[in-house]
Each structure stands twice: as C-alpha cells, then as structure tokens.
C-alpha cells in the first residue's frame, strides 16, 4: 500500500509550524504520530498536498504540573507516555489507564493525545475521560492562542472548532474538586480493537450523597456525548445499587449509537447501560482510577 504524493515540511519550532500552516491552510495536514492520518491517506480519505510534521517540536511532548495545580499534557505525548507517566499515575490514574487500554503496544508508542483529539471520531478513548475532568485545550496560530473547553471542541465526526491554521499544543487538566473518576470501554478484543462503547465518569461524593456527576459516552453518538439525563438521576441523591441501574438506563436511552459491523444499536445501548452502572460504581468507591 502506497501513499499519494505530498510536499513535506518538518519545521524547527512552533512559530515556523504556524507560519507554514497559515501559508498552506486547508491544503495542509499536521502530522503527529501518523496512526490516523497515514491510515486515512492510504485509503485516500484525505489527500493533503502538504504535510507539516511536528517531529522537531519536542517541547510539546512534556507532561508536567503547574504551581497553580493544573496538569499540562503536551499534544505530542504518546499514549504509552501517558500510560507510563508517574505524575499521571499518581494524580489521575483514570487518564493513564484510559491510554493503557487503547490500541496495541506499537500504536501506543506512536499515537499522540493531540491526534486522538483532533481526529475527532466517536470511538476515540481519551476525550471522554478528559471531558469529565473538565479539560481545556490550547490552540495556537500566527494570530495568537486561545483556550477551548474540550467539551465544546467537537461538532461531529471529523468536525471540530479547530481552524485550518491552528495547532493544538496542550491539554490542561484543572485541579479537581471531584472525588473520583474512571473510564471503562468494551472492545471485541482486549488489544487492537476500537471501543464499541465506552463510558467516562467523574463524581463528587460527600459521604453517601453524590454532589455532582459528569458522564460522557464514547461511540454513542457522532461526538463524545454528555449523558445529562443519567447525571440528573444521581446528583443530590444517596447512592444505591438501584439508583446506579436507573442512571445506566437513562444513559442508554439518551445515547444515539449507530449500527456497524462491530455492534448493533441495540447491543451498544445495552453495553452503555451496563458500563455506566459499573463506571459510576467504580468512581464512587475509589478515587481517580
């Protein structure tokens, strides 16, 4: 399998990358790990005239915490770097676990968090857990930079608010008031299979009472779907097994999964019911795992 022709640039720094992107606009594509982009180019789903590689921008690989308690994940951090980061394992195991459970070992060494977000497919594993934790992203262009809540980034399959001239540089995970979070996904195999359904949950518990809950579903709609009905079922309530089942049913009802070779709409809905219940149970019992 071969790739269509294109011109290739590997700018030395971010400002040159932005300048090139400005020059070529919609004719160019950014290359990070390439696991989505080259895949699509082999099928001629995308045929960019120009590829701008971020390979020299090593500053965008860093994972660090800020004095203000925000945690910053560079857009080029790979899935395995996120899975193995001691900082993330300590503070947000739920994020490193989500990265660890996706794709396969080789792909995890190549695929980046930035690519997983900008690619914008419903089965992507990192956006749901980042959204429930209130993550924001930084988008940079020659015009300057802006910060967007990740929840407002997605518009549909392959559709986001990113402009043709913008580069995603980092993901910001704010200091939490939530007490627990987790992401559970189900694929047909443990390795190398996309999620047929996934559920991310973050809750704030006060004793047995759930003070706040955020639930986001993967592979349940054209974009990561906030399950607001399910959230309403448990917020302000004393948590019981029956209540978690009700929340699962609500999430299943408000989900809009499509039928595909990997799973029918009905099957995915039932998975969402079960996974929502399990994810809530886990986040309520434990911490950010």
């Amino acid at each position: 399998m071969y790739l269509p022709d294109f011109d290739y640039y590997a700018p030395p720094d971010l400002s040159e990358a932005c300048r090139l992107l400005r020059e070529f606009g919609s004719r160019a594509k950014i290359l990070a790990g390439g696991t989505d982009l080259l895949h699509k180019m082999k099928h001629e789903e995308f045929t960019p005239e120009v590829i701008i590689s971020l390979k020299n921008l090593s500053a965008l690989r860093e994972i660090r915490s800020e004095p203000g308690q925000d945690l910053l994940i560079g857009a080029l951090a790979t899935q395995n770097e996120i899975a193995n980061s001691s900082l993330l394992q300590e503070k947000y195991r739920s994020i490193s676990e989500a990265a660890w459970n996706m794709a396969n070992n080789q792909i995890r060494h190549m695929g980046t968090i930035g690519g997983n977000i900008v690619n914008a497919v419903p089965s992507a594993d990192l956006p749901p857990i980042l959204i429930v934790l209130g993550a924001r992203i930084t988008l940079v262009s020659t015009e300057g930079e802006r910060t967007v809540p990740l929840e407002e980034f997605f518009l549909g399959v392959h559709k986001t608010v990113i402009r043709d001239d913008e580069i995603l540089t980092q993901v910001i995970v704010p200091a939490q008031t939530t007490t627990g979070s987790t992401y559970i996904r189900f694929g047909l195999r443990k390795s190398g299979a996309l999620a047929i359904a996934g559920v991310a949950v973050a809750v704030t518990m006060e004793g047995e009472i759930c003070r706040s809950a955020r639930i986001v579903l993967a592979a349940a709609a054209p974009l990561p779907l906030r399950a607001r009905q399910a959230e309403q079922v448990i917020v302000g309530q004393r948590v019981t097994p029956g209540l978690l089942e009700q929340a699962g049913l609500a999430a299943a009802q408000e989900s809009r999964p499509r039928s595909s070779i990997r799973g029918s709409t009905e099957y995915r809905r039932d998975l969402i019911r079960v996974l929502t219940r399990r994810a809530l149970h886990k986040a309520i019992q434990k911490e950010h795992i």
């Binding site: 399998m1 290739y8 290359l31 390439g34 895949h39 590689s53 792909i107 060494h109 190549m110 190398g192």
Partner: peptide, 25 residues
C-alpha cells in the same frame, strides 16, 4: 494498517509499525 505487527521495527528501542512511519520521519 497497523493491525498485525509483522512490520515491527524498533525506533530508539521502542517497537513501532514501520508501515505507518514515513522514512523522512
């Protein structure tokens, strides 16, 4: 397409799929 691993090589000691890597990269 990145699924089978028969094209695995090590880059800086890490296994990657060489079918999804540009030589220039």
């Amino acid at each position: 397409l990145g699924d089978c691993g028969s094209c695995t090589v090590l880059i800086d000691g890490k296994p990657v799929n060489s079918c999804l890597v540009l030589a220039v990269e």
